[in-house]
Amino acid sequence: MLKIENLKASLEEEDKQILKGIDLEIGEGEVHAIMGPNGSGKSTLSYVLSGKGGYVVDGGSASLDGADLLDMEPEERAAEGLFLAFQYPVEIPGVGNMTFLRTAVNSQRKMRGEEELNAAEFLKLVRARAKDLKIDADMLKRPVNVGFSGGEKKRNEILQMAMLEPKMCILDETDSGLDVDAMKLVSEGVNAMRDGKRSFLVITHYQRLLDHIKPDVVHIMAAGKIIKSGGPELALQVENEGYADLLNEVA
């Protein structure tokens, strides 16, 4: 599904390499988690994969089902089936949530040569998905993320994911700012989308999220590299012991 080889990337504005050779392969239907101390490059990895400006790829490759991601515009990556749930979802005053969702869904369909959803079909679909995530009609009508609480913003990210039905989902600290109930709701939303084919990359600081979204593989990232990979037990080790031992072990 997602294949990353020796990916190196720097900030465009300053001569500072953040990703220093990432190797990662996520198979169909797999859930991988990335943990790591602050500043290790986890969010940068998600941005570089999804095509945010301000980064320069210095080397390596990243592909989704064989298609070269790094060569594409962000919207093309999305149409290929890549989705990033933002750590800080962006507020866009003046753009209605529904309009945004429908434009996104139909833009992707158009790019893939599929038929666009008409207003009635779209409405039916979005109502059903929103209900699962306890998103009320009022939230759908409001401008994108404007005045949403932290939990509402994250649920809105999952709603977008559910509507866009991507192949590969990257969740960047989706648990940050969530209370226990909201985390459960968001996790259920994610788990509902696990169908044995769709793959997930879950970036998190806390093992707790992984109790809800159970990973197949856990990677530890530090200083722009993946320094250790293992099973779910690795996350528990981090929870109990912190990163110090792991970092020393590698050094």
Partner: peptide, 16 residues
């Protein structure tokens, strides 16, 4: 970036 990452083409996202 938020809009384009959801699949909205850049020029359309700018118009929005």
């Amino acid at each position: 970036f938020y809009l384009t990452s959801r699949g909205v083409p850049k020029d359309q996202a700018q118009d929005m």
